[in-house]
Nucleic acid binder design. Structure first.
Lengths: 209, 209
DNA sequence: CGATAATTTCAGAAATTTCTGAAATTAATA
DNA sequence: TATTAATTTCAGAAATTTCTGAAATTATCG
C-alpha cells in the first residue's frame, strides 16, 4: 500500500471497521479511498494504491455498487470505468440507512409477520408469539418514523436533528395545556398507522433495570 | 435442535441474521431463544434446546453479557446461572443503540478527530482532510441528536417517533411566518419558542456537490 | 480439606469468508 | 473478422471466525 500517511490511516481504519459494518476489509478500504479522492479512480489505480489483486477490486466494486455507495464515471476517449462516491455526505447517509434497513431490518420484519400469522400450538408458542408481536410493533414504529423522515430535504432533516428531544418537551407542554379542556391523560398525535398486530398490550411493567 | 416450530423459525432466523448484525449465529440463536422464553434459562437448557456445545454456550453468553443484552438471574437453592432478556423492548432498543454506537461509530469518530488534528503534507491530503471533516461533522450531528434523544422516557420517545417529519413542516411554516417580518429567506431555527435554547450552530452549509 | 457441580478457558478442528491468479467474457478498434 | 484492452468469473488457496472437547478453574458443600 502506497498512500500519503494521513490518507493511509483513514483507509486502514475503514478496512478494520469493515467487518463491524457488515462489509469486508477490502470493500471498506476501497470505499474510504474513493471517498477522499478528489478525482474518480479506475480499478487499476485502486489496485496500485491498496496493493491488492485486480479481481478483488473488481468484486469489491461490484459489492459497493450493490450498496449504491459508488458512482460510475467515464472520461472522453477512455473506456475504463472510473468510480467515485457522492459528494454530499447527507446523501451518503440516506443511502447507507436505506441499504442497512433493507439488509438488516426488512427480512426480520417479514419473518415476524409470517410467524405472527400462524396459530400457536402450545402455551409456550403463545407466549413467544406475544413477545414477537412486541418486537414487531417496535420495529414497525421505527420504520414508519424512518419512512417519514427520510423524505425530508437535507436542510429540514438537519433542523430536525438539531432540535432533538426539545420537540418532545414542547409537545408535552402543549398536550398538558390542551388536555386541560379535554381528557386527563394526553395521547399525543394522530398518524398511528392502523396495522399493528394485536396482542402486544403493555410492555409488561417489568422494565428490568 | 428441538423446539416448537414457531419458536424454531424465529431462532433460526436470528441465527442467520447474526452475521449481518455483527454477532454470530450462536449468539443470535441464544438471544432469540431467551427473548421468547417466559422463564430464564440456564446454560444446559440452552445446550439442550439448540443442540450446540456447552463451551459454545458459555462463550456466547459471555458475548451477550458484553453487549448488555442479557440479565443474570438466580433461583433459591440453585447455584446455576439463569439468563433472560429485559422485558421492555424499548429498553432493548436503547441498549442495542448504545452498544452499536460504541462499537461502530465511536472508534471512527475518534480516528477522524486524530487525523484532523494533523497538518496535511500535500494538496491531496488537504483535500482528504476536508472530506473527513465533512464526515466528522455529520457523525457529530447524528451523535449529538442521539445523545439528546436517548434520555427521553419511552412514552415521549414514542411520541417523537409518531410525529416523524411533521415537526419539521411545522417549524418551516412557523419560520416562514416569523420571517415575514424580518428577513426574506427563512433559515429555520433562528428563533425558537420560549423555552427552547439556541441549538448547535449552522449545519455546516458545505453540503458539497 | 476432599468431593462434587457449575462454569470457563483454550488449542486445534471445522466451517466460513476473503482473496488471488488464470481463464473466460465483453466490448471497442482496426 | 482478428486484435487488443478492460473487466468479470470462479476454483481453489489463504485467512479468519466459529465451534468443540478436554482440561483447568471456581465455588459450594459435607
Amino acid at each position: 500500500m502506497n498512500l500519503p500517511p494521513l490518507i493511509q490511516s483513514f483507509v486502514l481504519h475503514f478496512g478494520e471497521m469493515g467487518s463491524r459494518w457488515g462489509i469486508n476489509r477490502t470493500v471498506g478500504q476501497i470505499y474510504a479511498l474513493l471517498y477522499v479522492s478528489p478525482e474518480p479512480l479506475c480499478a487499476d489505480e485502486i489496485v496500485e494504491a491498496l496493493g491488492i489483486s485486480r479481481s478483488n477490486v473488481s468484486m469489491s466494486l461490484r459489492e459497493l455498487q450493490a450498496w449504491n455507495l459508488v458512482l460510475l464515471r467515464h472520461l472522453p476517449d477512455d473506456r475504463r470505468d472510473f468510480f467515485t462516491t457522492p459528494d454530499d455526505v447527507w446523501q451518503i447517509l440516506r443511502t447507507l440507512a436505506e441499504e442497512r434497513k433493507k439488509r438488516e431490518v426488512d427480512p426480520t420484519l417479514s419473518v415476524l409477520r409470517e410467524i405472527l400469522m400462524q396459530q400457536p400450538g402450545s402455551e409456550k408458542e403463545r407466549y413467544a408469539q406475544q413477545r414477537m408481536a412486541q418486537m414487531h410493533g417496535l420495529i414497525e414504529q421505527l420504520t414508519n418514523w424512518y419512512d417519514d423522515v427520510k423524505r425530508l430535504e437535507t436542510e429540514r432533516l438537519a433542523n430536525l436533528l438539531s432540535l432533538g428531544s426539545k420537540i418532545s418537551r414542547l409537545l408535552e407542554t402543549k398536550d398538558r395545556i390542551v388536555s386541560l379542556g379535554r381528557r386527563s391523560k394526553a395521547k399525543a398525535s394522530g398518524s398511528q398507522p392502523a396495522d399493528i398486530p394485536p396482542g402486544d398490550g403493555e410492555p409488561d411493567g417489568g422494565a428490568a433495570r
